[in-house]
């Protein structure tokens, strides 16, 4: 089991979460509607669904945590097996 690669993937997912978690797509789209009242743009910008990007950050954070937990579990199991086997 490539424990270090799972750890690395988890760290990369953490960076994705850092990049995406603070983003607010709904806010600027709402401002877009407010900036152009009366047109089709305002109608379309008022549709729900633009907050999805912020949700992505949360999912990436949970993905990172899951990978990190898996890597730790595998590493613990590996170390436990070596300890059980005793000195080489």
């Amino acid at each position: 089991m490539p424990t270090d690669l799972v750890t690395t993937a988890g760290q990369a997912a953490g960076r994705v979460a850092d990049a995406l978690a603070g983003l607010d797509l709904a806010g600027p789209v709402r401002d877009l509607a407010a900036a152009l009242p009366g047109g089709r743009t305002a109608t379309l910008a008022a549709r729900p669904g633009w907050a999805e990007l912020a949700a992505l950050g949360g999912r990436a954070r949970r993905h990172s945590d899951a990978l990190d937990a898996a890597a730790r579990a595998y590493l613990d199991a590996e170390a436990a097996a070596r300890a059980a086997a005793g000195p080489a």
């Binding site: 490539p2 690669l5 799972v6 690395t8 993937a9 988890g10 990369a12 997912a13 960076r15 994705v16 990049a19 995406l20 983003l23 990007l53 990436a60 993905h63 990172s64 990978l67």
Partner: peptide
């Protein structure tokens, strides 16, 4: 820009 900038890390976050 931030979403596009996260793409390399997103690729690296794929389970091995």
């Amino acid at each position: 820009d931030r979403v596009l900038g996260a793409e390399p890390d997103l690729r690296a976050a794929r389970p091995p």
